[in-house]
C-alpha cells in the first residue's frame, strides 16, 4: 500500500493505492476502484469466459447438483450445474442449444475458480 499525490479537478489530493496480482486498487473520493489497462486484460487469463461451449466455475464453491450427463442435449437457459458458495446457491445454465461433451466436476466436489465444469458442443 502507498499514498500518492494526484491532481483531481485541478486540486492536488492524496490517494491510497495498491497493486495486487496485476490489478490496481485505489480509493478516490470515497469510492474504491479496481483498474487494469485494456492491454493487460487481453493478455491475462480471464476466468469469466464468453465461450458458450465451455462452462467454468465463476467462483470457488461446492457442486450441489449436476443436472446433465455427456450425450444429453440441452436448450438455451437450461440449468446444467447448481453450486453453492458462501451459503448461497447459484445455477449455471447453457447459453446455447447444445449437446453435452464432458462433465468436469461431481456432486459434493469443492471446485476452484475457473475450473472447467461442463464442455458443450453447439
Amino acid at each position: 500500500m502507498g499514498r500518492y499525490r494526484v491532481t483531481h479537478d485541478g486540486k492536488e489530493i492524496e490517494v491510497v493505492a495498491q497493486k495486487l496480482q496485476g490489478k490496481l486498487w485505489f480509493h478516490l473520493n470515497g469510492e474504491t476502484f479496481v483498474y487494469e489497462p485494456v492491454s493487460e486484460k487481453r493478455q491475462s487469463k480471464s476466468s469469466g469466459t464468453t465461450n458458450p461451449e465451455l462452462i467454468e466455475a465463476p467462483m470457488p464453491g461446492k457442486i450441489l447438483r449436476v443436472e446433465v450427463k455427456p450425450g444429453d442435449t440441452v436448450k438455451v437457459g437450461q440449468v446444467l450445474i447448481v453450486m453453492e458458495a458462501m451459503k448461497m446457491e447459484y445455477s449455471l445454465a447453457a447459453a446455447i442449444d447444445a449437446s453435452i461433451i464432458e462433465i468436469g466436476c461431481k456432486v459434493g466436489e469443492q471446485v476452484k475458480l475457473g475450473q472447467m465444469l461442463v464442455r458443450l458442443k453447439g
Binding site: M1, G2, Y4, V6, V15, A17, Q18, K19, L20, Q21, G22, L24, F26, Y35, P37
Partner: peptide, 8 residues
Amino acid sequence: LYRKVGEA
C-alpha cells in the same frame, strides 16, 4: 497510478 505503483 498504474505506472507508479509497484506490485505487492
